[in-house]
Design a protein around this nucleic acid. Sequence first.
DNA 1: CGAGGTGCATCAGTGCCATAATACAGCCAT
DNA 2: ATGGCTGTATTATGGCACTGATGCACCTCG
Lengths: 117, 117
Amino acid sequence: MNANRPTSNRPVYLKLRDQIAAAIIDGAYPEGAMLPSVRALAAEQGANPLTVAKAYQQFQNDGLVEVQRGVGMYVVRGAAERLRAAEREAFLREEWPEIRDRMIRLGLDPADLAVIS
Amino acid sequence: MNANRPTSNRPVYLKLRDQIAAAIIDGAYPEGAMLPSVRALAAEQGANPLTVAKAYQQFQNDGLVEVQRGVGMYVVRGAAERLRAAEREAFLREEWPEIRDRMIRLGLDPADLAVIS
DNA sequence: CGAGGTGCATCAGTGCCATAATACAGCCAT
DNA sequence: ATGGCTGTATTATGGCACTGATGCACCTCG
């Protein structure tokens, strides 16, 4: 009873992007480390190499990842914090207001749910 | 620096659906009242009548709205509360966990943001 | 009955997404 | 140098969601 917010039915390249961003922020891909190759990640995720490349694309555009052609892509120094800051800012500006309004309408209080595991 | 969560670039019929749901929950479309006709709402919103119809569709499927063919669509008794309950349940089950994880990752605390206007 | 209002079905067009098959360009260890 | 790994460009294709135009079936009111 609710055809919903694109949570799971989101384009693959965006899901990959989020997943990679999380890995960078959490340090799963440490700064200076090499990211999985497009082919490797594609195989692991059951996706197409080009789709993975598309996911990686934005990170290079944003200068969070450095490409050494013929070698691989590396996480830039300070990428984690820079990425977190950018995502936080975007979240607060674009997502949170709507989420909060929605919760209020549904009779929910963010403070109460904070403790829920 | 962030090709983002579909907040504004969401399909029109979904945006309309949310907007209508909000109106029902808030009582802007009281129970027993007739909803704006697909053509009227389409004109008002600058959308196509079929897009509006698609937005209305789910509400009839869910039995929240009753169709009197040739006459109009009416808000069923108890629709507001039923809708709110369903949306709340869906939100808590499908959306909140991800949102919460995301906030934690970004170093945000829901309790703190509850007070932000 | 007829006019004007409903919702709804059908068909078509458009654009994004994902995949695929190659081919190319660069680097490195052997 | 060569084989094997990197990322990238190109082109084509299928699928699917979204939107749109038209016409029809139904109801109410005068």
